[in-house]
């Protein structure tokens, strides 16, 4: 790659239209005629027209941009990364987290911690789980790495609180049992890709 190409590598086809920048007139007459030309060209009135048009659009055609935020909220993208949700299994209602610790490992701001133990049913139980939202940068790696689709980013972006602890307890992030039916799968980071089946090789099973 030549230097020229290298420098221009992001410019695409270079089919830009250049601004018609006329030379500044040097004579008083030239300047005067420019004023006259510009005045009569009506550019100023185009400006007036545009603003008036927008005002009419806004007032009478319902094209107002303003969202009265606390009263009305825009729907957020499923890929938005706000306060985490911990999902449950739809069948049993048991939380999905298996305590593998991958989110804890991958967390680049080191804000996830969990305690696990060997429970009475010979399973790994997550006895404690917290995310320190004072440190969390909402990068989404935890949701990305989670093998069980258990930790996801929810849509709860209003994170002002008197106490950070208000968000960070496992139970708070967990889908309430009675809201299990409303639980949605996460479409953003770490969600199963649409073509996942194509990428999986089948393992033979003998039964």
């Amino acid at each position: 790659m030549s230097l020229e190409e290298f420098k221009n590598r992001n410019i695409g086809k270079q089919n830009y239209v250049k601004l018609d920048l006329e030379h500044t007139p040097q004579t008083p007459l030239g300047r005067f005629s420019r004023v006259v030309r510009r005045t009569l060209k009506g550019e100023l009135f185009v400006g007036l027209y545009v603003t008036l048009r927008e005002m009419i659009n806004a007032l009478f055609r319902g094209e107002m941009h303003t969202v009265k935020y606390p009263l009305e909220k825009l729907p957020i993208s499923p890929r938005y990364r706000a306060i985490h949700d911990m999902l449950r299994l739809l069948e049993s209602g048991h939380y999905r987290c298996i305590g593998c610790g991958l989110c804890e490992k991958i967390c680049i701001s080191n804000c996830i911690r969990m305690d696990t133990r060997y429970d009475e049913n010979q399973r790994k139980e997550v006895s404690e789980y917290t995310i320190n939202f004072g440190r969390c940068i909402f990068c989404g790696y935890c949701a990305e790495v989670c093998p069980e689709l258990a930790i996801v980013h929810g849509g709860r972006y209003e994170t002002a609180s008197e106490q950070r602890a208000s968000f960070s307890i496992f139970e708070d992030m967990l889908t309430p049992v009675d809201a299990l039916k409303q639980q949605k799968e996460y479409d953003g980071f770490g969600a199963v890709s649409p073509n996942a089946d194509e990428n999986i090789k089948k393992t033979p099973l003998a039964y």
Binding site: G99, C100, G101, E104, T116, R117, Y118, K124, E125
Partner: peptide, 9 residues
């Protein structure tokens, strides 16, 4: 030690 901690931690 069982299920107490992951090795990498």
């Amino acid at each position: 030690f069982i299920y107490k901690s992951n090795a990498w931690e």
